[in-house]
Simulated scan of single mutants.
Amino acid sequence: PSFPLPVVAYLHGLEGGSIARLTAIRWRSRFRLEVIYARHREILLPGFVYVIPAGEPLTFVGADILGLAPPGATSNVDHLFASAAHWYRSGVIGVVLSGLGTDGTKGLLSITQVDGIRVVQSPFEATFPSMPTNALIGDDVQYAVMLDQMGELLEALVTNPESMAVATAEVQAEVTRQVLLVAQTLTKSLDRSIEDILRVVRDDLAMDITFVTKHAGDDVVVSHSTPGPSDMRMQGRSHPKHQSLCQRVLDGRLPAVMPDVEALRLTHDVPELPVVVGAYMATPVWLSNGALYGMLCCLNASASRELDQRHYTRLQLSARQIARLINETGDSSGF
């Protein structure tokens, strides 16, 4: 038999291969689903998966009808979910699968407001866990399941929804557990990812140590760091703001690129430092909401007179990479 409802899919980065990819998924359901591309003003039929073509801002313009959004409108899954919630109310089911970023979280909130059903793929098996993770943290998701369980769940939801009312209450504890585990895993994953970037920056710029600093009251704390010469560790160290080079760079009292810190003392007020610093660079890590997360810094024990704007530009690019990671996890704690 065919699946008793139409399914609409919005996919990232699969131009030209969306249908093949979806057809290859094994949903483990007794129902058949035929995958095709959606078209403007086409009537949606049960048993079909309608893939939104890349670049076409299709949303629901009526029950079982997709149409082009007004000129200038952007196409994303949040708008698709919101339009489905408008037309189907509590009869809509929103599903967020593997993907980067926060896409789908706002859309699921729209579905929550009309008492629709919210489902995510378990982030523990997702190739890119950001989207289901952010949905779990940002909305009251009812089901978080493995992909090979998705077909059976959706089949039960559409064929016998009354039987799922009790199941929904039962799985809330499991969903809550997954949210807590995801938050813990996400923090560890973020730390590892930042440390990986720091190692690349250290090697690329040929510096002794690369690190990230954050404020903690009147002190500056090193939150992440590469090992230094002789395995010297800076992570966890703190010192007053008035002794911090990165703070003075942020305040504009010192230049962002310091090839020779000792020579700079002739023209600038350079504080006494707790470690030997010959060369230094620092750049802020700005988040998408305009908040300052911290400072990305690097140093050499000896002067590096070749340091210039080219090196600083590469440091800034790395700061933006770190900011993107932090934006995706929702960890905005910083300066």
Results as ranks from 00 to 15, higher is better:
124 F>N: 11
126 A>Y: 00
130 S>Q: 10
131 M>Y: 01
133 T>D: 01
133 T>H: 06
133 T>A: 13
134 N>P: 10
135 A>V: 06
136 L>F: 04
137 I>M: 08
137 I>W: 01
143 Y>N: 07
144 A>I: 02
145 V>A: 05
147 L>H: 05
148 D>L: 14
148 D>V: 02
149 Q>I: 09
149 Q>V: 08
150 M>S: 06
151 G>I: 08
151 G>R: 10
152 E>Y: 09
152 E>R: 08
152 E>P: 09
152 E>F: 06
152 E>H: 11
153 L>Q: 03
155 E>F: 03
155 E>K: 13
156 A>N: 13
156 A>C: 09
157 L>M: 12
157 L>N: 09
159 T>F: 03
159 T>L: 12
161 P>A: 04
162 E>H: 10
164 M>V: 13
166 V>S: 12
168 T>G: 08
168 T>M: 14
168 T>W: 00
169 A>S: 13
169 A>Y: 07
169 A>D: 07
173 A>D: 02
174 E>F: 12
174 E>S: 13
176 T>H: 04
177 R>F: 11
179 V>R: 15
179 V>M: 15
179 V>Y: 07
179 V>N: 02
179 V>E: 14
180 L>Y: 03
181 L>W: 08
181 L>P: 02
181 L>E: 15
182 V>L: 03
182 V>G: 00
182 V>H: 01
183 A>C: 11
185 T>S: 10
185 T>M: 14
187 T>S: 01
187 T>W: 08
189 S>W: 02
190 L>M: 02
192 R>W: 04
193 S>Y: 04
193 S>V: 04
193 S>T: 07
194 I>G: 09
194 I>L: 06
194 I>E: 00
195 E>V: 12
195 E>P: 10
195 E>C: 05
196 D>C: 07
196 D>H: 12
196 D>F: 06
196 D>I: 07
200 V>W: 03
200 V>R: 12
201 V>E: 06
204 D>V: 13
204 D>I: 11
205 L>N: 02
205 L>G: 06
205 L>I: 15
205 L>M: 04
205 L>E: 00
206 A>Y: 06
207 M>H: 02
207 M>G: 05
207 M>F: 09
210 T>F: 00
210 T>M: 08
210 T>E: 01
215 H>E: 10
216 A>S: 07
217 G>W: 02
217 G>M: 00
218 D>V: 13
219 D>L: 15
219 D>M: 08
220 V>F: 11
221 V>A: 14
221 V>Y: 08
224 H>I: 05
224 H>W: 11
227 P>S: 15
228 G>P: 12
229 P>V: 04
232 M>W: 02
232 M>P: 06
235 Q>P: 00
236 G>A: 09
239 H>L: 13
239 H>P: 04
240 P>N: 05
240 P>G: 15
241 K>H: 10
241 K>P: 03
242 H>M: 11
242 H>A: 12
242 H>Q: 14
243 Q>D: 01
246 C>T: 04
247 Q>S: 07
248 R>C: 04
248 R>L: 12
249 V>A: 14
249 V>H: 07
251 D>P: 10
251 D>N: 15
253 R>S: 15
253 R>Q: 11
254 L>N: 11
254 L>K: 00
256 A>T: 03
256 A>S: 15
256 A>Y: 03
257 V>K: 01
258 M>W: 03
260 D>W: 15
261 V>A: 05
264 L>P: 10
265 R>N: 05
266 L>V: 04
